[in-house]
Design a protein around this nucleic acid. Structure first.
Length: 327
DNA sequence: GCCATTTGACCGTT
DNA sequence: AACGGTCAAATGGC
């Protein structure tokens, strides 16, 4: 992380102070927009303004969505470790654009993700890795003798409900198990694949994909595919108030939540980044110390970071699920 | 020894 | 053929 030189052309107001003021104003704006959203929802007595898969959402909800997203994106830009450097570069070069440049912080991330383990593994001894050398059951060979559940699963995958969420943390308080990671074309960061831990004992089909946002690695795009059908989706009930407004949660919190730590660590994050919100908060702000933040933010700041949007075009009756969606 | 993660191969889709 | 999603053996942590 490079140190930031604060330019003194603005007189007695330093960048960090301006930045903090900006953050506070944005957080305030986000809060008001959220209140407006809730107000609209209460007025209409409608299901929350989801934009689930192009479904029929109101113009008001769309507008609120855009407003909230703008706040979240602006805050995330401000909060990016690279943002300060880029900001000043453009400012000094009379450029009017605010661009997040790929800096060394970002470049280092890829090599840390997933590769450290393999290099450690293969450097020490002769690898005897036969992973993937099995013969997988080919669906095309079995297409004529699919069982009904197999056929149903095939169809489900074609019409599965999906939605996305951008968040500074991959943590969502639900019990997931990682089953894969792939390098994605034209993407700097690999995509991680998670399934519900209750997949086999309860047949829960929920999966999620997690990928760092290339332009702003502080944030993750999390794509959820399918709702939890299991009874025990929560990971640790005491953490429910940690980051996202419960109303923003896309999963129905079960009443009989289990206390189970599914993620003792998070390899998808660089430098062993801790994903619990409290620690992420400290982590993030320790990174920002280079620009001399004097007053650490409250969680109001972080609540502004998460926003949700949907990616493909199906409509589902959220009312039926009794869920409340932010978008 | 158990269990979660890692990771290369396999497979379907485009 | 390339790409993305999934599988499952290997590995490491507890």
């Amino acid at each position: 992380m490079s140190s930031i030189v604060i330019c003194g052309s603005e007189g007695n107001i330093g960048f960090s102070e301006k930045r903090e003021r900006l953050m506070n104003k944005l957080v305030e704006g986000h809060k008001h927009a959220t209140e407006l959203k809730l107000l609209l929802q209460n007025q209409n007595q409608n299901p929350p303004a989801t934009i689930h898969h192009g479904g029929g959402s109101s113009a008001e909800a769309l507008l609120i969505t855009k407003i909230l997203r703008s706040f979240a994106e602006t805050l995330s830009v401000l909060d990016s470790p690279s943002s300060s450097a880029s900001f000043f570069l453009n400012e000094n070069n009379s450029g009017s654009q605010l661009v997040i440049a790929a800096n060394s912080t970002n470049n280092d991330l890829r090599s840390e993700e997933g590769s450290s383990e393999s290099s450690k593994r293969f450097s020490s001894s002769v690898p005897k890795d036969r992973r993937g050398t099995y013969k997988r059951r080919s669906l095309s060979n079995l297409i004529f003798d699919l069982t009904l559940p197999e056929y149903t699963e095939l169809m489900r995958r074609k019409t599965e409900e999906t939605w996305s969420n951008v968040s500074p943390t991959t943590e969502d308080n639900l019990a997931w198990r990682k089953y894969g990671q792939k390098d994605i074309l034209n993407s700097k960061f690999p995509r991680s694949y998670y399934r519900c831990t209750r997949k086999y004992d309860q047949g829960c089909k929920a999966t999620k994909q997690v990928q760092r946002i290339q332009d702003n690695p502080v944030l993750y795009q999390i794509t959820y595919i399918g709702r939890h059908t299991c009874k025990e989706t929560l990971k640790a009930p005491q953490m429910t108030a940690y980051l996202l407004n419960p109303q923003d949660h896309h999963q129905t919190p079960p009443t009989n939540a289990i206390i189970k730590q599914e993620y003792p660590k998070q390899e998808d994050t660089p430098s062993g980044e801790i994903i619990i919100a409290e620690k992420l908060d400290a982590n993030l702000w320790s990174e920002l110390k280079d620009i001399e933040i004097t007053n650490p933010p409250t969680y109001a700041n972080f609540s502004a970071f998460s926003y949700h949007f949907c990616t493909t075009g199906f409509h589902f009756d959220d009312h039926h699920h009794g869920e409340s969606h932010m978008l």
